[in-house]
Design a protein around this nucleic acid. Sequence first.
RNA 1: GGCCCGUUCGUCUAGGGGUUAGGACGUUAGAUUUUCAUUCUAGAAACAGGGGUUCGAUUCCCCUACGGGCUACCA
Length: 506
Amino acid sequence: MSDKKVRVRFAPSPTGGLHLGGVRTVLFNYLFAKKHNGDFILRIEDTDQNRYVEGAEQYILDCLQWCGLNPDESPVAGGPFAPYRQSERKAIYREYAEKLVRQGHAYYAFDTPEELEKNRKEIPNFQYGQVYRDGLRNSLSLKEHEVNELLDAQTPHVIRVKMPADERVSFNDMIRGYVSFETNQVDDKVLLKADGMPTYHLAVVVDDYLMKISHALRGEEWLPSAPVHLLLWDYLGWKADMPQWAHLPLILKPDGHGKLSKRDGARLGFPVYAMNWFDAKTGELTPGFRELGFLPEAFLNLLATLGWNDGTGREIFTLDELVDKFSIDRVSKAGAKFDFEKAKWFNAEWIKKLKAESLKLKVKTILEEKGISIADDNYLLKVIEQVKDRCVLLTDFYLQAGYFFEQPKEYDINAVKPKWTDAKTEFFNNLINTLNSAESWQSAELETVFKALAEEKAIKAGEVLLPFRVMLVGGKFGPHVFDIAELLGKKETISRIIKAMAAFGS
RNA sequence: GGCCCGUUCGUCUAGGGGUUAGGACGUUAGAUUUUCAUUCUAGAAACAGGGGUUCGAUUCCCCUACGGGCUACCA
């Protein structure tokens, strides 16, 4: 690593929710920056007015905050290179685009979208570049006075980069190694749109330069446009300051093939966004990992190990540990299919790993959303400790912990009824009395008392254990019954037995 | 179609000229838990194909196949 300060950026466009691939790109940028004591910058690419969605910027900020990947500089945090919203930097881009035109590396193009559309339809393999640019309406093909007239008349136009002929552009990708392109194959990308907004190609170069970005980590889908960016860095005279590139492998659909997309979530039954995203334009709600019950620690962890590993076989890492272990040369080249089962495993591991105290707030929220009010935080802590090993998602706490706070609304009758006998009725009636007179209320003692009574009534403990569980819990699940009874307390336990007896219809 | 990138169990991956090709998820079987889950043990499961180079190739090279990405006044 050179002694130049490491500065990386993530530049999402506020056109929708934050995708899995997006979060992973942020994460890798963040890890890389922090690993080298550098800065992580958030820039907003809000230059596409057609696709811009109100609220998306805030949503992205919220996602990053949920994940704990807070930027050092951003439209909100501010910073020395403000503004960080590209729409607010419009004038800057125009200046550089015009400079490129003056240098002869870019030109004005007056073709309308309709004309271009027609060409694409009629000419096979049409591309605005080497082969066809002379036949189109631009400042390269038109006479100077014609161009000036068009410009004076405020004719809508774009600025396109002029790709050179017969050159080979190459660079060394931090992940892929040597990559090279033939300039003849690359088209003259639009740099500045007719509305004066820059395209990604111009903006990324100008902003990365101005914001002193040292390393650019982005998705592999950007690889084909890398030569455009490389050339721009060169033409603008900034070659020496060009960041080092890294193109991250894509996250693919778990079935079939292709890049994971928003639609896949609904189709395959798992989220593809970090958090719920409500699109105000379409009125559509796309579910997120957070609301499904994922811990941010697990979410980050699973994303980090999708395409990266530390070489030891270890899979569970905290964010700090990831920062410590991260190394760009251990990022794999091949795309990874997303596996929701493994994602859930990560979450289960994290729920087990985290202390009840760390889970408390989130569990409390989930229970309260289900209408369960929590009066005693200490009690909640004990409950969480009891059940957290059996939860895969945070939302599982409703099923696994809910009965500690309210009596079962219904019982798994089928588990009890067929084997119910008068002897059992008698047993439980006796049990109520026994428990009523119990002096202490400890799990182990309750178990002793319970079993002694069973023996006295000549009933196998196993015969009444399950009914007892169903009385307290409502179903055939949960921790050790007597631990549950202990937590529930004397009064509540007895009350549940009485209530259930009635429900069992005995 | 063109260009670019990629290819180890079903999935995520480790490895790397000579290995019983390792781990994890999932799966199967068993143990423990008088429920369920956890936990534990064991099992099945992979180097895309063809040519080189080499004493030896899954590993290096080439070709093919397959997969993916890009090919917008979207990012």
